[in-house]
């Protein structure tokens, strides 16, 4: 994506974000959240986050010849264990990053 397109995309992303936030605040009083939205929102976070995580973990910086990035998978698994156990954002990030660095720089293979 060229520079101009990227800028345009970011501006449209900003407009979408403000529209979603402003929706009910600027609508006349009495407007209610539609039932279809409440129903479909239920699983949005649970579905979107893994859909964002998986490609970034599996397929970024893959060593030529490999299918997936095994270092990132191991580091993400350790971080996931910490996230599940502690629900601590900084602890999760530290575990994942340190694990990735150790695997990348101190493994003989």
């Amino acid at each position: 994506m060229s520079g101009m397109d990227a800028w345009l995309t970011v501006i449209v992303c900003g407009l979408v974000t403000i529209a979603v936030r402003a929706s009910f605040i600027v609508l006349p009083p009495g407007a209610e959240v539609p039932a279809w939205l409440v129903g479909s929102l239920k699983y949005v976070a649970a579905a979107v986050l893994p859909a964002l995580i998986v490609p970034d973990v599996l397929f970024r910086d893959v060593v030529p010849g490999d299918t997936v990035n095994i270092y990132r998978i191991i580091a993400a698994a350790l971080a996931a264990a910490v996230a599940l156990k502690t629900k601590h954002i900084l602890g999760t990030m530290t575990t994942g990053m340190v694990a990735l660095w150790l695997l990348k720089w101190w493994t003989p293979f």
Binding site: A45, A46, L49, P50, L52, I53, D56, V57, R60, D61, R72, A75, A76, A79, A80, A83, L84, K87, H88, I89, T92, M93, G96, M97, L100, W101, K104
Partner: peptide, 16 residues
């Protein structure tokens, strides 16, 4: 340093 790996890690801490 692969700092972009922090992106999936942030999402990982938000998902559970």
């Amino acid at each position: 340093w692969s700092l972009d790996f922090a992106i999936p890690l942030v999402f990982l801490s938000l998902v559970f």
